[in-house]
Simulated scan of single mutants.
Amino acid sequence: MVPGGEKVSWSFMFLLAGAAAQTIRYRFGSTCAVRGSTVILPCCFTPLKSFSPGGREIPLRIVRVLWCKNHEICQGTTPSVYDSNSTAREPRFHYLGNMEANCTLQIRDVKMEDQGTFRFRMEADNSAGHFTNRTGVNISVADVIKMEIKSSSNKSEVSRGQTVSLQCTTSTCTFTHLEVTWRKDGHALPGNGSALRLGPLTAKDSGNYSCALTRNMETQSEPFSLQVEEEEEEEEEEESNLPLAAAVTFGVLLVVTTLILFIFIFKRKQTAAGSPNIMGGETEMKTDHIYSSVLPPLPQETGSQKQEVEAEEISYASVQFKQSKLDRKAGEESDPTIYSSVASRG
Results as ranks from 00 to 15, higher is better:
144 V>K: 11
214 T>K: 03
272 A>V: 04
346 G>K: 15
150 K>M: 09
69 K>W: 08
184 K>T: 12
123 E>A: 13
198 L>F: 08
345 R>Y: 10
190 P>A: 04
132 T>S: 15
181 T>H: 07
238 E>Y: 07
141 V>W: 05
75 Q>F: 07
79 P>V: 08
110 V>K: 12
249 T>K: 11
29 G>P: 04
68 C>W: 14
288 D>E: 09
156 S>V: 00
34 V>R: 09
105 L>D: 13
27 R>M: 10
171 S>H: 12
176 T>R: 10
219 T>M: 05
318 S>H: 09
12 F>Y: 15
334 S>M: 02
105 L>E: 15
211 C>A: 04
250 F>V: 08
131 F>I: 02
299 P>Y: 05
50 S>M: 00
331 G>C: 00
344 S>V: 09
96 L>P: 03
69 K>Q: 15
221 S>K: 01
62 I>K: 12
181 T>V: 01
237 E>S: 13
257 T>D: 11
254 L>R: 12
63 V>L: 06
73 I>S: 13
58 I>S: 07
342 V>I: 06
304 S>G: 00
112 M>T: 08
310 E>H: 02
18 G>D: 07
285 M>S: 11
78 T>V: 14
23 T>E: 05
205 D>R: 01
139 I>V: 10
78 T>R: 06
253 L>V: 07
178 L>E: 11
123 E>P: 04
306 K>R: 07
262 F>E: 07
208 N>S: 13
